[in-house]
């Protein structure tokens, strides 16, 4: 016999429907007005997830930039989902054979428009360069560090195409670095409960306006099920004293 967790579990549904409702969830054949007209700010860059947007100049990742996201697969998925939300853009992930695709669907990424190259092998810079031509957002876990002319060529390609390159391993000279420095899961007791939500502290630094590292605490996911949300200090065992955003030296 098969039984589920003893805890009250929300009725399992299709992961794409349990995700946050989006304009793209409208029945096919209906084009939302927002997709017909240019999105506000679309020319400037790729929208960041709302809690991170307030830390980024203009609230976007600039076109042609490279972003380093360390220690967190779900933060990467949240960034991708926000960047391509409300567009028909395709996304590619290179060198991630262990990416949880259900989590991607939960974040609101359309799996039909999500291409994976799990094992790019030694040719991975060529593969990434080819994908940058066709995809707006390309995530890559570099199997080996990329330096010198190859790195410059790839960076130039990304800049020229106006794409967004996301690296989940240390990347040479990124425009923005996001790093989960601290996290805490809630919902587990000693033999009871289940994983429900967590708080994560994300450090953001980078070039230009971001040269002073800043720290933000997020829900990832939040108690009401959003994959990423601004930390509002609610929830069990949380002291509402600490401010959400701090500047660290």
């Amino acid at each position: 016999m098969t039984t589920g967790p003893a805890e009250h579990v929300p009725p399992p549904g299709d992961p794409t429907t349990t995700a946050r409702p989006r304009l793209t969830d409208l029945p096919t054949g209906v084009t939302p007005a927002g997709a017909v007209t240019a999105r506000p700010g679309a020319d400037r860059g790729y929208p960041a997830p709302p809690p991170l947007a307030e830390l980024l100049p203009g609230g976007v990742f600039r076109r042609g930039s490279s972003v380093e996201i360390l220690n967190s697969g779900s933060l990467m998925l949240a960034v991708i989902a926000a960047a391509i939300a409300d567009t028909r853009s395709w996304t590619a992930a290179v060198g991630m054979p262990d990416l949880g695709c259900l989590a991607a669907a939960e974040h609101g990424i359309d799996l039909k428009r999500f291409a994976l190259v799990p094992h790019p092998g030694a040719h991975w810079p060529t593969v990434v360069a080819a994908l940058v031509d066709g995809f707006d957002v390309v995530a890559v876990r570099p199997p080996s560090p990329l330096t010198g002319p190859e790195h410059r060529r790839l960076a130039a390609r990304v800049r020229q195409r106006g794409a967004l390159l996301i690296a989940t391993q240390p990347w040479d000279n990124p425009d923005v670095t996001l790093r989960v420095t601290n996290q805490r899961w809630y919902g587990l007791g000693q033999g009871t409960g289940r994983l429900k939500y967590r708080t994560a502290t994300v450090t953001i630094e980078g070039r230009g306006a971001l040269n002073r590292a800043r720290e933000i605490t997020l829900w990832m996911p939040s108690p009401n099920g959003d994959p990423i949300a601004t930390y509002d200090g609610t929830g069990e065992q949380i002291s509402p004293a600490s401010p959400a955003i701090r500047t660290i030296a």
């Binding site: 589920g4 992961p15 779900s74 990416l99 989590a103």
Partner: peptide, 13 residues
């Protein structure tokens, strides 16, 4: 599918 792992889904499998 009773007993499937509940949300949130893990990002690394």
């Amino acid at each position: 599918w009773p007993g499937r792992i509940p949300p949130p889904q893990p990002a690394t499998v």
